[in-house]
Design a protein around this nucleic acid. Structure first.
Lengths: 208, 208
DNA sequence: CCTTCGCTCCCCCGAACGGGGGATTGCTTG
DNA sequence: CAAGCAATCCCCCGTTCGGGGGAGCGAAGG
C-alpha cells in the first residue's frame, strides 16, 4: 500500500517537480497539489492523504497556520514543511503547529522521499541545519535560561556600528582592528542572536 | 612658492602614500603628517600649513571635530576631507565645521593634487558623488520640505520585511513578485532615505 | 493628449557578506 | 595547571547586495 502524499506549494515549477518526484517513486502516490493554504484546507479533508509536503511560504494564509487547521481536522496527518527560511522562530512555530518534519527546499529529491518514509514511521526528518537549531533551542531552555542576550562589550560595540549601516571595513577602521576581526565577531553575534544577517541582528538586539 | 600641505591620517600606509604624493609633486610641500586629531591640533598651529588633507575617520577625536578646532585657531586654513564614508550627514557636518573639500579615499592621486590647487584658489573640490549629495541637500530644503519620508505604500512594506532580516529573494516570494522588483524598490528607498544599505535604511526609517 | 509616478521586470558587474574551516594571545577560573 | 573564553587575525568560496543602465504598463493629473 503506497503512501498518499499531498503537496501544498504556490510555485508551480516546484510543485510540479515534487508531484513528479512522488509520482515516479515506488511506494508513493501523489494525492493532490494545492497552490495555497486555502485550497489545501478545502481539498485535503475531502480525501485525506497520509502525508503532506507543505511550503511554509504561501500567498495569503501561511503554511504554519494551514498546518494548525489541518491537524485540528486530521490529527493523524503527517506534515513535512518545506522552506527556504532558516529562521529559528519559524521552525518552532511550524513544529508547535503540528508539523513533524522540516526540510530546506534545497534538500535533494531522494532525501525528500526518505523523509516521507521516515515521517510515516514516526520519525521527524529535518535538514541538519534545522536539527541543530532545534537542539540548540533545548540547550537554551535547559542549563542557561538567558544566554541569548549576553553579547560581549566588544560585540555590542560592533553591533551598534552595524545598526548605523556601516560596512565591516568601516567598523574595522574606526575600531582600529582588522576586517577579519569584525567578521568573526559578527559570526559570533549571529550565533548568539540566532540570525543570519546584520540587519536581522541589529533589529533583534535593538528591539525594533 | 609651493603650497604647504599637512596630512592627518591614522592609517600609516595611506598617510605615507599621501606624503609621498605631495612631496613628489611640483608646487607642493608636505608640512607634517599626524596620526590623530589630537596630535594635529598640537602640531599644526605651531607651523601653519596652507592646506590640510584630513581623514574623517580618526581614532579618538573625529576629523570633523578636529576641523572645527583648527578653523577656530586658523580661519584661513583650507581643509580637504578624505573619507570612505558617503553618508550625507557626515558630509554636511564636515562642511559646516569648516572643510572646503570632500574627497572619497578612492580618488586617484592626481585628482587629489588638483583638489589641493583648487581649494587654494577658493574652490570646493568634491568627488562627483559627494557633489550630487550636496546639490540634493539644497534641492531638499527648497521645493520639497518633507522629502525623505515619502516612501510609497509598497516601499514601506518592503522595508518592513528588510528590517526583519529577510533576503530580497524571500521578500519577493512572500509578496509574490520578482527579486528584481524588490531590488528596484530598494534602490528607490535608498535614494529617498539617502543611505546605501538595507540596514541603514531600516534603522533610519524606523528611528532607532 | 501627454507627462508623471508607482510598480513591475531585466541585464551586467564588482564589492560586500556569511559560512566553513583554523590559529594565536592573554585572562580568568575551576 | 588545564580549560574556557574573549579578542584578534587568516584563508576559501559561494551567495547576496547595490549601482548602473533600460523598459513596459496603468492610474492620476496637468
Amino acid at each position: 500500500m503506497s503512501i498518499r502524499v499531498a503537496i501544498v506549494e504556490d510555485d508551480k515549477r516546484i510543485s510540479a517537480a515534487l508531484a513528479r518526484l512522488v509520482h515516479e517513486a515506488g511506494g508513493f502516490r501523489c494525492a493532490g497539489t494545492y497552490a495555497s493554504a486555502e485550497t489545501a484546507l478545502w481539498g485535503i479533508p475531502k480525501e485525506p492523504p497520509d502525508a503532506v509536503l507543505m511550503d511554509i511560504n504561501l500567498p495569503g494564509m501561511s503554511g504554519v497556520d494551514c498546518v494548525q487547521r489541518l491537524k485540528e481536522i486530521l490529527p493523524k496527518l503527517e506534515i513535512v514543511m518545506l522552506t527556504v527560511y532558516e529562521d529559528g522562530d519559524q521552525i518552532f512555530s511550524a513544529l508547535q503547529a503540528g508539523a513533524s518534519g522540516y526540510l530546506l527546499k534545497r534538500t535533494p529529491p531522494n532525501e525528500i522521499l526518505k523523509a516521507l518514509d521516515d515521517v510515516m514511521q514516526g520519525g521527524a526528518p529535518m535538514s541538519s541545519y534545522i536539527a541543530r537549531k532545534v537542539v540548540q533551542s533545548f540547550q537554551k531552555e535547559g542549563p542557561s535560561p538567558k544566554e541569548s542576550e549576553n553579547l560581549s562589550k566588544r560585540e555590542r560595540e560592533v553591533l551598534a556600528y552595524v545598526a548605523q549601516g556601516y560596512l565591516n571595513k568601516e567598523i574595522a577602521d574606526t575600531l582600529a582592528v582588522s576586517v577579519e576581526t569584525i567578521r568573526s565577531q559578527l559570526k559570533s553575534i549571529y550565533d548568539k542572536l540566532h540570525v543570519r544577517s546584520r540587519t536581522a541582528a541589529a533589529f533583534k538586539y535593538f528591539q525594533k
